[in-house]
Amino acid sequence: MIDEDLKAADCSCKTDSIIDEMAAIFNENTITEGSLIPILQKAQTRLGYLPVQALRYIAARLNKSLSEVAGVVGFYSFFSTVPRGKYVIRVCLGTACYVRGGKEVLSALEKHLGITVGQTTDDRVFSLEVGRCFGACGLAPVIMINEEVYQRVKPVKVGEILAPYKMREAEMEAVK
């Protein structure tokens, strides 16, 4: 699992702007012993993902090794080291969602979008990820699209759920 993708994604870079963004985060926040995860969250919110330059900057500022910072990033599915789409679709595969068909929902989404878990559509509109319990087991199976929660999702309905997002994108494209 060599992250060649990651290296490739970072070559296209705008390193300076990444460093500026990171410096801003460090200026705006008090840094303490346990700052790594909050800083990573803020960095991902700003950049949309965590490029290696950002991680190197964070590691140096927090006096940690890149290996440790990358280890934390790799552990949490929330963090992504590759650019993600405008809408991140997270399919819950926690126990309740799994037994109530989460996997089928995921397959349907993969088929519909033409991507697999961890990938982003070519137009950078959708990314597909898996989550482990969103705390909404009573509504299983659940998916989230950015902050929006969709409950009792049926595989056949995924197209319907995605339609408004696609429409919005098409309209914005047209305006451009």
Partner: peptide, 15 residues
């Protein structure tokens, strides 16, 4: 450092 998670865990340098 441990990289990634679960069965995919690798002990080694970043990425």
């Amino acid at each position: 450092f441990p990289q990634y998670r679960g069965f995919n865990t690798l002990i080694g340098p970043a990425f």
